[in-house]
Design a protein around this nucleic acid. Structure first.
Length: 382
DNA sequence: ACCCGACCTGCTAT
DNA sequence: AATAGCAGGTCGG
């Protein structure tokens, strides 16, 4: 572990949580394996490092105390200007943002590293967080209040395929993610691969997020607020940064969320019944049925939501619903038929069960491609 | 109601 | 060395 901040232990059997698959299976796109068995990422605007043994999760959090002190006056100026721009999104002109885009790579590098000083005071206030509160955040993020062992045995009874693949892969969890991060990450996911999704999400944070802490020389940024993604010029900027057609979706969705009432509107969807939540999210540009279900499942607390992607469609047609083999495309009707089928099979936590099965299958396949003898590792990103 | 092509980008496999 | 093919989709005709 990185020296400087204290390492805590949270009692948690490995059969209840397996970090490697859970963190790298395409739920969240911001976790990195910084050394074997050691993961670093962000929960609730704090940088965490996690590892585990058979009985405990070891964790530590990182604050900007660790940010190296090198900072020039120039970069301070740059960052102050940037902050002002961010703060006054309402009055920000398109031209200001265009200037932003055209910054030289050097200036960009300076800028990206250097909001830090400004945030020091805020972060230091956060330092006073007790061990118990951190543990609570961890429990909440991984939904540790739900016992997985009993769920696995339930799901194994419900589905022979689950029973077949699950024994070697206990502890795969659906995380309870931040809704804003979830929405925009999965807008990035359309017609895309995990490697590039991770890259885009990281880029989004670097451009529009704020620095949280520098750890081992790497500055970690918060996920951008909705208002900064709704600001003028965002689409153009994101296009220049390789987001392709998703740039428009991100910008328009951010604007729509702001019109509806911002974060509080998004969070209020949690309390709607699943189907209503699902259709409300689908109003956002770039959010179709599949992405909406990802969000329902991973950040809205609707654990019966089943994201049906092309892969799920193929498996469903092959192994469960043969009459769908002739379908050319996944229409809304077919989509719901597949989702409803798995909800009937698995019951209340169908989305979790189904995702675990998919992840395991995917994990196994990918590993087998990488090493034809043993199941070793998930591919590393970046 | 269903089907189809277009859409950005970057990595693979010919 | 160039180029089709494709990746956990979405949208509009």
């Amino acid at each position: 572990m990185c020296p400087g901040s204290r390492v805590f232990r949270l009692k948690c059997a490995k059969s209840e949580l397996r970090l490697d698959i859970t963190l790298q299976c395409g739920q969240s796109f911001r976790w990195r394996e910084i050394s074997p068995g050691q993961w670093r990422g962000i929960i609730r605007n704090r940088v965490w490092t996690l590892s585990q043994d058979d009985s405990h999760i070891m964790f530590q959090t990182h604050s900007s105390e660790n940010v190296s002190a090198r900072q020039t006056d120039l970069s301070k100026q740059v960052s102050t200007i940037q902050m002002k721009q961010k703060a006054s999104f309402g009055q920000a002109t398109k031209r200001k943002n265009t200037e932003d885009i055209k910054m030289s790579p050097t200036n960009k590098r300076i800028r990206n590293n250097q909001y830090t000083k400004i945030y020091d005071c805020e972060i230091n206030e956060l330092n006073d967080i007790g061990e118990n509160k951190l543990k609570e955040e961890l429990r909440n993020y991984f939904r540790l209040d739900i016992s997985l062992e009993s769920m696995y045995s339930l799901w194994s009874k419900a589905d022979v395929n689950f029973a077949a693949v699950s024994p070697q892969f206990h502890g795969v969890r659906i995380m309870n993610q931040d809704a804003v991060e979830n929405v925009f990450s999965f807008i990035c996911s359309s017609n895309n691969n995990i490697q590039r999704i991770s890259l885009l999400v990281e880029r989004l944070c670097k451009i529009y997020g704020s620095p949280l802490a520098a750890v081992d020389g790497i500055t970690w940024h918060s996920f951008p607020g909705v208002s900064s993604l709704a600001a003028p010029g965002v689409e153009e900027t994101l296009r220049e940064h390789g987001f392709g057609y998703r740039a428009k979706y991100i910008h328009k969705s951010a604007q729509m969320i702001m019109e509806e009432g911002g974060d509080s509107w998004l969070h209020s969807l949690r309390s709607l019944p699943y189907y209503e939540c699902h259709s409300q999210l689908m109003r956002l540009p770039g959010v179709g049925a599949k992405v909406s279900d990802c969000i329902c499942l991973m950040s809205m607390g609707h654990l019966s939501a089943i994201p049906v992607d092309t892969h799920v469609f193929q498996i469903a047609a092959r192994d469960y619903l043969p009459h769908l083999r002739t379908c050319k495309t996944v229409t809304e009707k077919v989509y719901h038929e597949i989702a409803d089928h798995f909800r009937n099979v698995f019951g209340e936590y169908a989305g979790w069960a189904h995702s675990v099965r998919q992840m395991i299958m995917q994990y196994s396949n990918i590993s087998l491609i990488w090493n034809s003898v043993a199941i070793l590792n998930f591919p590393r990103y970046i």
